[in-house]
């Protein structure tokens, strides 16, 4: 991560769309009177949903909407790395996880694919369709390596499949998100390998308990002592 700055080229103005404004108002209404600024993160998030990134005029509009100093919104927008401060690709924002589990499972190869196809990270690709980033752990370690493309996770990637997926995004026909090897949730590859013995589930393995584990000793004298 490097120092976060607002983009050099900014639009002249920003206005919430009717739909976003409705949602911003709904967020503001969730907080008590006089605490509208609690809605700053949802508001910025809605800006990003609408615009694709957070522009400088949008920061001012959010400050105005929430009645807070613009420097406070600026602080929030620069603090959270998920707020994009520069325009992002029109077709895909690719966030490749580069943290240890993914790195061990081949994230560097995915990054190399991105580097080769789209140039340096954190910048628009030459055709303006894609922006790629390396991000910290996205919490899908068991399905490493993975990348978040726009709003969804694509897991268990190999450089080849990753490139295919990227092509699909650029063509405007993204595939369904999730594990590309058909893994169920974060279950082991190829399905579950344990707890498969059918007898575990038919009750035959069950035995009556002699005593509860860690129960108090039954000796009366000792129980009395303990009570005292």
């Amino acid at each position: 991560m490097s120092v976060r700055r607002l983009a050099a080229n900014q639009p002249d103005s920003f206005a919430f769309s009717a739909e976003s404004l409705k949602q911003v108002k709904a967020w503001i209404a969730r907080f008590p009177e006089g605490r509208q600024q609690s809605a700053v993160i949802p508001a910025l998030w809605l800006v990003q949903k609408q615009q694709g990134w957070v522009s400088e005029p949008a920061i001012r509009v959010v400050a105005e909407t929430l009645g807070m100093p613009v420097i406070r919104v600026y602080e929030v927008a620069t603090f959270y790395t998920m707020f994009m401060l520069e325009p992002v690709g029109s077709h895909a924002l690719v966030q490749v996880c580069g943290t240890t589990p993914c790195m061990l499972r081949g994230a560097n190869d995915l990054k190399a694919v991105c580097q080769r196809r789209f140039g340096d990270r954190d910048h628009l690709s030459a055709d303006g369709k894609v922006t790629w980033q390396e991000v910290e752990c996205l919490g899908a370690c068991s399905n490493a390596p993975m990348a978040a493309i726009n709003d969804y996770y694509y897991e268990d990637l190999t450089p080849g499949i990753f490139e295919q997926i990227l092509d699909e995004f650029i063509a405007g026909k993204p595939r369904a998100p999730g594990s590309v090897i058909g893994r169920q949730g974060s279950a082991p590859e190829g399905g579950s390998a344990v707890l498969q013995d059918a007898s575990l589930f038919d009750g035959t393995a069950a035995k009556a308990l002699k005593a509860l584990p860690n129960a108090e000793p039954k000796t009366p004298g000792k129980a009395k002592e303990a009570a005292q």
Binding site: M1, V3, R4, E56, V70, I71, Y74, E75, T78, F79
Partner: peptide, 25 residues
């Protein structure tokens, strides 16, 4: 500036090792 002077114009932007004190732009 925020509490005594009452004009919130100086802030701490970014985070971690990269934090910077600045006014808005």
């Amino acid at each position: 500036i925020t509490e005594v002077a009452g004009v919130a114009e100086i802030g701490l932007i970014s985070r971690g090792e990269d934090v910077e004190i600045t006014t808005y732009l």
